[in-house]
Design a protein around this nucleic acid. Structure first.
Length: 592
RNA sequence: GGCCUCGUAGUUCAAUGGAUAGAACGGCCCUCUCCUAAAGGGCAAAUACAGGUUCGAUUCCUGUCGGGGCUACCA
């Protein structure tokens, strides 16, 4: 099934082709979008204004001619407006047909992609021995949603948690483990114990330079395969993974792989040798570097920076003068592996915007090596404090992700207690969890991912207004109706035995149907731009349309012919909400 | 210094170059003998500044001011 705008665009393009014949480029596709203002109809196209200049026609006249050609169109009333807009007001009959079609379609009208791709999505990527903090929220939640969306659209998706399990921080952690670590604490809360230890060593190193040397030598021993240090290192990873898994389970986020930095250790040396042998990398000040190959204009070249009016090289360093490898080296090896072993067509990195240059360099080096694929840095803005500086609490600590989750669930629990005091305790807990975690996810996904974001407890954990519980509540309302309905026609319709006869009369019914039909076009658009906020704001709009319908259009108390139409709208609202929210990774509830 | 990015109601956020710039929170006013009021209906309130391109600019270009990021051996 084509989406409404696709269907209209096809007819419009035919009409334009008939009108302009040769003047129209061979592959021209008219663009049809939902109108922002309903007074101008449901969909509109500015194709006549776009084409008028090259066709040397008056835009209004061209639009009028097209409107005339489209007069017989069954799905919409077509009209000309303003400087040359072509407006389409979808008929109630068309919406009625769409609703029936959606009811019989598991995908609710959302088309599959024409060319499925194998996509590796790299997101979350916390460091070992450090708990996740608020800074990990964006990557984790956005990445998960993109994976869900891409899978639903028909792509083959591999999610990979590229944890930081091989950094220089292990020198300090190893020293701390051996000299400071409280074993009892380690049993109790391993990640916290490791963090405390790490911080203490870090502090002492600043005071005693000789300690820093001791840490470095621990790191060297680890890297050269010292058995004791390797065992400690493995235990660090193990306890960290266990701690992280708890949060991921709570958030309902799953990874196909956890291939951390250490996984690529053996690939680094050969990689550097290969780059050297092929002349892509060279030695400079003792380090092995990749410099610009001059393909780009200086301004677009990720290996150049302008200083004092001159373009200076900023190479990607892949081996330090002391022989150690870096972030860039590991990332190149990782990318190789994903192409070779996973046969990835596309790799998406859900990583903060400050690393833009890093990824440009990595992708450019792959280009120099002749490695092809659709590599994307899906960037997002920073989380800032109220002072618009990178977020920290007053004492300089970041807030742990677990604290945010716990606080959210607690706040939700208080509201549940207030609104549904008679609910069984176990259900109260379930509701609080779904509402609290849903609120965090929805708050994150509602924003444009590129905007910076001011961390605020009250905002992130808000439960009123444009938030998850508003949407969850609209679903609850539908389910409450459906539990009470006693209508054999509805039952037969749900089982697919009877095609419902639908009549859309009231303004709010039509508005709800219009919004429901748009789901089919919103989901692909959300993935195309990797912008979950498009789907989030659509779902909010749908919930509003439903609440508004709910107030004005009684379902159970209406006469049977009207009732069946309204029940269909309710059922479709439930299905779209359920599918849409599941794509965002947010649970819905039967009651709340 | 250069490059990137952002600047929208009191606050936090929206808006593939489209028509009268949308929401939410906060403020003010209404609506529960009626399917869950975690709701609905209404009021007041904004594009940093100056130019330019365009039939049409929050969006594109130039400059100014202001925030953030990046700018060779951290990740």
């Amino acid at each position: 099934m084509m989406t409404l705008p696709e269907q209209i665009a096809e007819k419009l393009t035919d009409a334009l082709r008939a009108e302009l014949s040769g003047a129209l480029p061979e592959n021209f596709q008219a663009l049809v979008v939902a109108s922002q203002d309903l007074r101008y109809g449901d969909y509109q196209s500015n194709a006549a204004m776009v084409l008028a200049k090259s066709a040397r026609k008056n835009p209004r006249e061209l639009a009028q001619a097209v409107v005339t050609r489209l007069e017989g169109m069954t799905e919409a009333e077509v009209s000309l407006a303003g400087p040359g807009f072509i407006n389409f007001r979808i008929t109630a009959t068309e919406y009625e047909a769409r609703m029936v079609a959606m009811l019989g379609d598991e995908r609710l009208g959302v088309p599959l992609v024409k060319h499925p791709q194998k996509i590796v999505i790299d997101f979350s990527a916390p460091n070992v021995a450090k708990p996740m903090h608020v800074g990990h929220i964006r990557s984790t939640i956005i990445g998960d949603t993109l994976a869900r969306l891409a899978r639903f659209m028909g792509h083959i998706v591999i999610t990979d948690n590229h944890i930081g399990d091989w950094g220089t921080q292990f020198g300090m952690i190893l020293w701390g483990w051996k000299n400071l670590l409280n074993q009892r604490e380690l049993e109790h809360d391993p990640i916290e114990a490791l963090l405390v230890t790490y911080k203490e060593v870090n502090k002492r190193c600043k005071e005693q330079p000789e300690l820093l040397e001791a840490c470095k030598s621990e790191l060297v021993r680890l890297q050269s395969g010292d058995v004791e240090n390797l065992r400690i290192w493995e235990r660090c990873i193990e306890v960290t993974k266990r701690g992280l898994q708890k949060i991921y389970d709570q958030l309902d986020i799953h990874f196909d792989y956890w291939l951390g930095e250490s996984f690529y250790n053996d690939a680094l040396e050969p990689l550097v040798e290969d780059l050297l042998a092929r002349g892509i990398a060279r030695e400079s000040d003792g380090a092995i570097c990749v410099f610009s190959d001059g393909t780009h204009k200086p301004k677009d070249d990720p290996f150049l920076v302008n200083k004092e009016g001159e373009w200076q090289p900023v190479p990607a360093i892949i081996r330090k003068a002391d022989g150690a490898f870096l972030y860039a080296t590991t990332d190149l090896a990782t990318l190789d592996y994903r192409i070779r072993e996973f046969q990835a067509d596309s790799i998406w990195y859900v990583v903060g915007a400050p690393q833009e240059k890093h990824f440009k360099q990595i992708f450019d080096i792959e280009r120099m090596r002749g490695v092809t694929g659709d590599f994307r840095h899906v960037a997002f803005g920073s989380i800032l404090g109220k002072d618009r500086r990178p977020f920290k609490t007053r004492d300089g600590e970041t807030v742990s992700l677990q604290d945010v989750i716990d606080e959210a669930v607690e706040r939700a629990a208080r509201v549940v207690e207030d609104k549904s005091p008679d609910m069984p305790a176990e259900e109260k807990a379930t509701v609080a969890e779904a509402v609290g975690i849903g609120a965090i996810k929805f708050a994150e996904l509602s924003q444009n991912r590129l905007s910076d974001y001011i961390f605020d407890w009250d905002k992130m954990l808000s439960l009123s207004g444009d938030t998850a519980p508003y949407l969850q509540n609209s679903y609850v309302r539908v389910r409450a109706i459906e539990r009470k309905v006693d209508d054999p026609d509805f039952t037969a319709m749900l089982s697919g035995d009877v095609r419902p006869k639908i009549d859309l009369v009231e303004e709010r019914e039509i508005n709800l149907a219009r919004t429901l039909a748009r789901f089919a076009e919103v989901v692909p658009a959300t993935l195309d731009d990797c912008r979950p906020n498009l789907l989030a704001s659509y779902l909010y709009e749908l919930a509003r349309a439903f609440h508004s319908f709910y107030e004005a259009c009684p379902v159970l108390r209406s006469t049977s012919s009207i009732r069946i139409s309204r029940l269909v709208l309710c059922e479709l609202t439930a299905r779209v909400l359920h599918l849409g929210m599941s794509l965002l990774g947010i649970r819905l509830l039967e009651r709340m």
